[in-house]
Design a protein around this nucleic acid. Structure first.
Length: 607
RNA sequence: GCUCUCGUAGCUCAGUGGAUUAGAGCGCUUGCUUGCGGAGCAAUAGGUCGCAGGUUCGAGUCCUGCCGAGAGCACCA
């Protein structure tokens, strides 16, 4: 926010060092860590170390030398527009802003930009984020929720940071698992259909569990049971074969069940406020990917070992000229000519690059698929796509349960819908006791916002590479470092502003802010946090790390809560001070709202 | 065997573009409502940052080795 002053000072330092033949190291600025005044600081340790290396005879210790340089620079700078004072301390040069100017600039900028405060300048690159790739007919569980929330928040971050952004979903709609359900439905339940989108979707998962059990070899099978099981298995294989050759009956059935499942997925995405731009289906890239295999063989990237009874492979390390094994060798086409996951990912990448003109391609996928994606990126590079350098795998640790890993085939999963329902129930019981003034008909909607806020934040407040053991009591906690804590800060800010209007003031039209009174340390810290928002947006987007924004949002809310308790805004006697404080509250409310929006968490006016 | 990720407070985790003081939450102890909403605030206790070396003026952060945990490694996705 204060690049102008920074640049000016930087220029002066560079000029000074050049004139005095000082080997200036790169200038890195950081906020001054001591609360009380605002400014930025840089150290001269590296520069001093450079000097020490160059001048052999002179043996001044580095910290002392750094301090000397800082003092010299300080003397050179004199007085600077907008800067109150400059000091040289322990090898650091600390530059302080004029307090009232700084506060006014921050608050005015937030209020004049509103929902756009923090939005980055338009960037030339297009980013595609691929997430929400559940297998169809498996219903949406809490692990999918982590994936989807991470992906959506990342998409919001890069979009707000200024990138052209495309959201893509890639459901897995083929394979033996999917056919297993089609088989079970056709054999045992043909014609049945539960009422309700979620019920229907979840019912398919039940069929899968049943079918898996029927097809699984048991320990003490009687000859009859074995025969039965093998007959079922043959039927399933036959159905898979028919699907593959495009048998109309099987294809129609498959399409119907697939649509049931996709309807549920679309409903879940609506609940999570996710609006996909593009839907890729695995079945759409299956055929095109076979063509790509031929191209890669023709270009000498892939080796066709089918004549020897093998598959089509890519010796990635060898082709890249690596001596140590890193990407190894992988198969891109089975010996029977059918495709693999990797084959389809190559085809999909081509579509992303050529049809959607994607410059940066982000894959939000389970961390266990890391090697596969690295292999895919390496092949894309061999293939000649420059975008391969900007393919990024946002891996996330898997979500397990206290009793062990989730397993769709065993039906041991925690469904997202169930957690969402439970969340609403729990918030409503808290509302009943704490929010008697909220009309009953509004409570349900607010309860959903709070409950989902808790769940969503719990998924974002842990770094993506860490595994999570899902504990519903922790995920739906409302105390401490949680979504509701941040929402509560928003509600409180809103409450102050509402009340000030009731008393006849208009906080959104208070005229210019004049922070020329002695600010409390709570106001200072709050303004400091508010001013950091644009920087945090850029950082989170550049590093592809939703956690950066999640942490910031908590810190901001935390600072606001402290301010709230320490400074009573509405009882401030001096009128201009009170107005300034109201504007600070309005600015805080705005930035909390902007941060929550990026985190895919709603900001209710009351709770 | 090779590759990747991770060892920070009793528990769950931030901090790893080097930098003036290692931070939260939960749990423990204690205060705060004649004040804008107590889903909150304030205070106290709790850490040889896995171990050992190395680089540096300076290492939780970078390098090497070791110990420990998890994941992955050609016709699954």
């Amino acid at each position: 926010m204060f690049q102008k002053e920074q640049q000016f000072i930087e220029e002066k330092i560079k000029t000074f060092c050049k004139a005095n033949n000082i080997a200036l190291a790169e200038l890195k600025w950081q906020p001054i860590p001591f609360a009380g005044e605002w400014g930025f600081a840089t150290s001269f340790f590296q520069t001093a170390a450079n000097e020490a290396k160059l001048s052999k005879g002179n043996k001044v210790p580095v910290p002392q030398k750094a301090q000397e340089i800082a003092e010299q620079v300080k003397g050179q700078l004199g007085s600077v527009e907008g800067i109150s004072h400059i000091e040289a301390v322990k090898g650091y040069l600390n530059i302080y802003f004029k307090t009232s100017d700084y506060a006014r600039r921050v608050v005015d900028e937030v209020l004049s930009n509103g929902a756009n405060f923090g939005r980055g300048a338009k960037k030339s690159e297009t980013v595609m984020v691929e997430y929400a790739q559940p297998n169809v007919m498996h219903s949406f569980h809490i692990g999918h929720a982590r994936n989807t929330i991470l992906g959506e928040v990342l998409a919001r971050l890069v979009e707000f940071a200024g990138f052209e952004t495309i959201r893509a979903s890639y459901p897995g709609d083929l394979g033996l698992g999917v056919i297993t359900i089609v088989w079970a439905y056709d054999k045992f339940y043909k014609g049945q259909e539960p009422i309700g989108v979620h019920e229907r979707g979840q019912w398919l998962l039940k069929l899968y569990v049943e079918a898996t059990s029927l097809l699984e070899k048991k320990d003490n099978e009687s000859p009859n049971e074995t025969a039965q099981r093998e007959a079922y298995e043959a039927e399933r294989r036959e159905m898979y074969r028919k699907w593959d050759v495009g048998d109309p009956y099987v294809r129609d059935l498959w399409k119907t069940l697939r649509e049931w499942s996709l309807e549920e997925l679309r409903e879940v995405l609506r609940m999570l406020d996710v609006k996909m731009d593009v839907w890729f289906y695995e079945s759409d890239v299956d055929e095109p990917s076979k063509v790509i295999v031929d191209e890669l063989i023709a270009r000498g990237i892939a080796d066709d070992e089918r004549p020897q009874g093998g598959a089509v492979i890519v010796k990635i390390d060898e082709k890249l000229g690596l001596t140590k094994e890193k990407y190894r060798t992988n198969v891109i086409l089975r010996s029977d000519g059918t495709t693999l996951y990797l084959t389809k990912d190559l085809a999909l990448a081509k579509v992303k690059f050529e049809q959607y003109h994607v410059d940066r391609s982000i894959y939000v996928v389970d961390v266990r698929q890391s090697l596969h994606l690295q292999q895919a990126f390496a092949i894309l590079k061999l293939w000649g796509f420059p975008q391969a350098e900007k393919c990024y795998h946002l891996g996330y640790g898997f979500v397990s349960l206290p009793e062990g890993a989730m397993s769709a085939r065993r039906g041991r999963v925690v469904l997202f819908k169930d957690v969402a329902d439970e969340a609403v129930k729990r918030v409503l019981s808290v509302e009943a006791e704490k929010s008697a003034d909220i009309p009953a008909e509004e409570r349900e909607a607010i309860a959903y916002q709070i409950g989902m806020g808790a769940l969503t934040y719990s998924m974002l407040s842990v770094d993506n590479n860490k595994d999570i053991v899902f504990d519903i009591n922790e995920a739906l906690s409302f105390d401490g470092r949680t979504g509701p804590y941040i929402q509560n800060a928003y509600v409180r800010a809103n409450s102050i502003l509402k009340k000030s209007k009731v008393e006849g003031q208009k906080s959104d039209n208070l005229g210019p802010s004049t922070f020329d009174y002695e600010l409390t340390k709570h106001e200072i810290e709050l303004i400091e946090l508010v001013s950091q928002f644009p920087m945090k947006v850029q950082q989170a987007a550049e590093e592809y790390r939703p956690l950066v924004m999640a942490s910031y949002a908590y810190d901001l809310a935390n600072t606001f809560h402290s301010f709230y308790h320490a400074v009573n805004v509405l009882q401030t006697e001096e009128e201009t001070t009170k107005n300034a404080r109201l504007r600070l509250v309005a600015a805080s409310k705005q930035v909390i709202a902007n941060a929550l929006r990026l985190l895919d968490i709603q900001a209710p006016d009351v709770m």
